Computed example of a mutant assay.
Amino acid sequence: MAPGCPQQSRSASPGQLSPAARRNLAAELNHRFDPSTPLPGARDGAAELARARVFVTEGYGHSSMYVPSTCTEQVKQDYLISGAFPAAGKTCTVDASPFAG
C-alpha cells in the first residue's frame, strides 16, 4: 500500500458494491454498434445496478474516446459535473463516420 493512500476495507471483495454505492445513478455509455459490449449486454449490465441508465451513441466501436461525438462529450460533462442525465430515449450521433475517407 502506498503511503498516504487509504486502505481498502477487507469486508468488501473486489466487484462488490456497497448499498450506498448502489443507490447512486450510474451512467453507462455505449455505442449502438459496439462489438465488445453489444447493446443488449450493456442493458443487462445496467440492470444489475439499482439505479443505472444506458446512454446510446449512434456509432461504432467500443469506446466513445475514439469515435468523436460533441453531443456525447456534453452528456459526459453534464453527468460528471452536475449529475444530470439526459431524458430516456435521447441518443447522440457521432461527428463523422469512422469509415469516412
Rank of each mutant, 00 (worst) to 15 (best):
P38V: 04
T91E: 05
P68G: 09
A100C: 06
V54C: 11
C5A: 13
G89S: 05
T93E: 13
A27R: 03
A100F: 11
R23T: 14
L17A: 11
A88K: 14
G61R: 04
C92L: 07
R10T: 15
Q7K: 15
S11P: 00
Q16L: 13
P3D: 12
A47V: 02
A2H: 09
P3V: 08
R22V: 02
V54H: 10
T91L: 10
P68H: 12
R43L: 12
L25F: 05
S82G: 11
Q7W: 06
A46F: 10
V54L: 13
D78V: 04
R23F: 05
Q7L: 14
R10G: 15
V94P: 00
A52F: 05
E28V: 15
L25A: 10
F85M: 15
R43G: 02
Y60W: 15
S97L: 10
Y66M: 12
L29P: 07
T72M: 13
Q77S: 12
F85C: 02
T70V: 04
G59T: 00
P98D: 01
T37S: 11
G101Y: 06
S36W: 10
S82N: 12
G15W: 05
R10Y: 07
S97K: 04
G41P: 00
L17T: 01
S64R: 01
H31S: 07
S97Y: 06
M1C: 11
S97C: 05
G89N: 07
Y60N: 01
C71W: 00
D34T: 02
A2C: 08
R51V: 11
H62V: 06
R51T: 12
P86A: 09
A27Q: 06
F33V: 02
P6K: 06
A46P: 01
K76N: 08
G45M: 14
V56D: 01
E48L: 15
K76T: 03
Y66L: 13
P68D: 07
C71N: 03
P19C: 09
V56P: 01
P35L: 09
H31M: 12
H31T: 01
S13C: 08
P14W: 04
